[in-house]
Design a protein around this nucleic acid. Sequence first.
DNA 1: ACCGTTCATGACGAGGCCGTCATCCGACCG
DNA 2: CGGTCGGATGACGGCCTCGTCATGAACGGT
Lengths: 222, 222
Amino acid sequence: MGRVLVIEDDERIGRLVTRALEGGGLLTERASSGSAGLDAALRRDFDLVVLDLMLPGLDGRQVLDQLRERRPEQPVLVLSAVPEISTRVAVLEAGAADFLGKPFAVAELLARVRARMRPAPGGDGGRWLRIGPVHLDLHRRRVTVDGVRVELPLREFLLLQHLMTRAGRPCSRDELLADVWGLHFDPGSNVVDVSVRRLRGRLDRADRIETVRGVGYAYAAD
Amino acid sequence: MGRVLVIEDDERIGRLVTRALEGGGLLTERASSGSAGLDAALRRDFDLVVLDLMLPGLDGRQVLDQLRERRPEQPVLVLSAVPEISTRVAVLEAGAADFLGKPFAVAELLARVRARMRPAPGGDGGRWLRIGPVHLDLHRRRVTVDGVRVELPLREFLLLQHLMTRAGRPCSRDELLADVWGLHFDPGSNVVDVSVRRLRGRLDRADRIETVRGVGYAYAAD
DNA sequence: ACCGTTCATGACGAGGCCGTCATCCGACCG
DNA sequence: CGGTCGGATGACGGCCTCGTCATGAACGGT
């Protein structure tokens, strides 16, 4: 479950925000001043920090700068009543992951928070793929089944990757042709079927590819 | 340098956006319809897609859905004149990385685009490798030189990856044999040399592999 | 300038990848 | 139970990959 730190001095808005986030299934923590917030952010791990710009004592901008300095990988979503474009730009350039002006709709805040907490596109959100005994390393293009290495040719690896990332959902031949083969038209042959067969053969007993009649193939979800 | 695809049918806004992004040091490409944009996004690699919601033919929302379906890791920033909060929320929940309402300030757009292209917070673990014009995608095992795809066989890709991650440092043949070939002994042949040659040939003018006499090879640091 | 060492280069060929096709089989329907 | 359609299977072959070797070129020390 995601953990969010809310740094906001205004009691009313603070409540509003934490309520909204908790309603969205997130764990929240609250800090009412810049220094307390910075402290909490440095001491513990949060998936996201929601930071108000106008704060007593240590200013929100200073908190952001400190955070970027001492924990550059920490994503921060900045809230602010300041409407100027220059402020937004400055905050984003300073490293904030997102900016939302006040007044804001809680639904939009929640949606933006969620967007920021999604598995990072290039990050390790994609390096490893594991379902049951089958384990893919996307970087090294390696497969192990029950810890034993299995050599897969390129096409079969891409095919397996596509199916596993969409486990439980059937994938049409067209979809596979487009993503695995890069073909945006039907080559008029059963390449997909043949490749699936070869892949099945190589996975042997670990094979979890199901054929969905009239549609395509699906990897059995966990 | 970052590569951005702008999908926008309005000629004026399209110009405005691409100009702004190029002014910010980004490479842009333009598509004037949903289907053309989707096509380009699927066929080539972009660091970010800027997508207008209102498009002729294939709607922006459909483009987003297709993209999420077929290339879930592709970050998308949605532009829209629709002011409703529900639209923003729906778009973000549908997987867009960001949302910016029209009319917008080009400065803010540029700042948001940059924010989305920053290395992913979770430590992107090295999905992308880029030195000068040569760009590796470790997940997709793809190489582009000046944005143009170059097909590399497995061995040559691994070799290039090893050298680029250690750019500026010479790598001995033993080291390469161990990491790229998995051989912990000398096979008594010049496999490494031959593979380097082939790789050089394929990189052509972009080749930055230097031979370090008596040691091995090194990729020229940036 | 000479010569040994190191690297570059071109050619060869076994093996594997992968697209195609023809045929077989099993599922679903009447 | 027979027909039809979609998928499974086995075989074939072109092409690419990649390890090997022989030879030529470049370097560096004396």
